[in-house]
Structure formats: structure tokens, C-alpha cells
Computed example of a mutant assay.
Amino acid sequence: MSFLARIDDCNRWATGDFTPFFVAGEQLGMVRWAFADALCELLGTSFARTDEGLHWTRAPCGFEARTEAMAQLCDALIARGFISYRHGEAYPVTSGRREDARFLIDRACAPYFGIRAFGQHINGFVRAADGLRMWIARRAADRRVYPNRLDNMVAGGLPWGIGLRENLRKECAEEAGMPTELADRAISVGAISYCRASKRGLKPDVMYCYDLELPEDFAPRCQDGEVAGFALLPIEQVADLVRETEEFKLNCNLVIIDFLVRHGVLTPDHPDYLEIVQRLRSLV
């Protein structure tokens, strides 16, 4: 195993399996060919396939109208079994920044259309007498995605209508029982991108990353049932878990690898160092 293998795990997709998704002439995602065919067959002239890709030909004009039309479309696809479920959080549909959203889509429906999603991940760590230690979460057994897998101390999606700092505080409170004044110590350290095919479609996602140095007397306690428990592990053990096992939820590996680079645990002496650094942000 290797750190590059973990990066590869988050970037497995074949361009030939997908076709661009266009709205008003702008590419906003990528869809599987079978999903594109289903949309054209089920919804007639609302969608059309060309050599260029799949076009939402009857998308209404305007943010609100398109958002409502997409919600109705997803409901119809759920009723027909082409989409599994709704998550209940609205995500921006954008070709770039989340602030430039063209309309909104439910979080669980976004991968079917290959829509870029945004999230926030926090590296919670302690400077102990014997070196760096990192708080690692164990996801609850009833989680729909990656049950029982290891996770960052705090991590979550970034829905529409909430700012980054506000969402960070909310996630810290829900997932780690952390007071606002402690959550506000989290330092933004960059963003990581990846693109991965999944059962639902394509995930060309961006994660905003944060470091949060914690006092030794703080212990996270989950408040919303999403985490089964936490462990404070030596950073060398965390690095071994990332490199040698598949214990972590896939994208959490990337966040930790980035931490290892920035804190001098993974150094330029490593033979894959430059490739690792470059590939963590290849899509941003």
C-alpha cells in the first residue's frame, strides 16, 4: 500500500463512462450514459442528447425556477427508482465557486448529475509530550455511507444558505460536542479536490480543510449519533492506518495526507512527495 494508492482510490473514474451535462449552454456536471438515456426517454423534450453531451433543454430561466424544476425532476426520478432517496440538504449547482450557484439540488441527487459538492473537514490534534496526536472518529454502524469506518474528528457537507464559519461551528457542536469558542480556533489550511465514480454517478468534490489544535483536557463527544466514538492516536499510527489499510472513509485519507505534509511527518525525502502534493489539489 502507499499514500498514492489512497489518492488513486478517490480519483477512479473513466471519462468514457460519462457525458457532459449542460444547462443553458454551460457545463455543470457529468452524467452516466445510461442515466442520460433514461432522462431523454422518460422526460421527452425536456432533455436531449447531442454529440456535445446531455442538455436540459427546457430548464426554466432564473435561480428559483430552476431550483423548483430540479426538485420536481428528482422527485419523479425517485418515484421511478432512478434515484435512491433525498438527503434533505440543498447544494449549489455551479461550475466553479459555490457562491456562483445557478440553482440548487438535493445533496443525495447531486452525484447522479455529476455536480460538484463542497465539504469541510477538521484535523483535530494535540501536541502531547511525546509528539503530535490526532483525534480520529469511528462512524456509527447505522450510517448510510461508510458505516463503521474511520473519519476525521469533524467533517460534513456544506449546504446552501450557511456560511463556512457558521457551518463549521454547527458541525463541531453536533459531531464533537465542541463549544463555539473552541471551534473558532480552527485555522483554514486550504482545499483538497478529487473526482470519483460511485454507484450514484460522479463526485467531483472539493473539501475545505482546517487544523484545530486542541487542549489535552478536551475529549470530543458526539451529540447527533453519527459517530460511535473517538480515539486519540499518535500521528505515526494514523499515518500507518492511512497508508496500509482501508479503514478510513476514502476522502478522509486525503485530508490526513495533507496534514502529514504540512506538519513535516511526510517530507520531501519520501519518493512520492511531489506527486502527492500535486495530486491533492489537481481539480481546484
Rank of each mutant, 00 (worst) to 15 (best):
V242G: 04
V242M: 03
T57V: 08
P215L: 05
S198A: 14
L202E: 02
W33C: 11
F259I: 01
K199S: 10
D75R: 15
P159F: 05
V189I: 15
M178Y: 03
W56K: 05
D100P: 00
A69M: 02
T67I: 06
E64K: 14
R116G: 02
A117Q: 15
L104C: 11
L28K: 00
I162T: 11
L274V: 08
I136H: 01
P147R: 01
R281H: 13
R107L: 15
I122G: 09
N148T: 13
L43T: 03
G156H: 00
F125L: 10
A59Y: 04
W13C: 07
V265P: 01
A48L: 12
C252I: 08
L266A: 03
R149M: 15
D272A: 13
A219S: 10
C209N: 07
T67G: 09
V255M: 07
N11G: 11
R49F: 03
N167V: 05
D51E: 14
E68T: 14
Y273H: 13
H121K: 15
E52D: 13
L254P: 05
I276A: 08
A140P: 01
L73D: 07
L43S: 08
A219K: 12
V284A: 04
G131S: 00
A90M: 12
P268M: 07
M30C: 11
S198V: 13
H121Y: 15
E236Y: 03
D9T: 14
W160K: 09
A65C: 09
I122M: 03
G124I: 04
R6I: 06
E26L: 12
S188E: 15
V154M: 04
D75T: 10
F125K: 05
L168N: 10
L233W: 03
I105E: 01
V261A: 09
G25H: 05
G264V: 02
G16C: 10
L241I: 06
V126H: 06
A183H: 00
W160D: 14
L42T: 07
R49Y: 00
L274T: 15
A5I: 06
G225D: 01
L77C: 11
K203C: 13
A231S: 15
Y91K: 04
Q120C: 10
D269T: 14
L202K: 01
A137L: 07
F125C: 06
W56D: 02
A101P: 07
A191D: 04
F35A: 07
L104G: 04
V277H: 08
A219M: 07
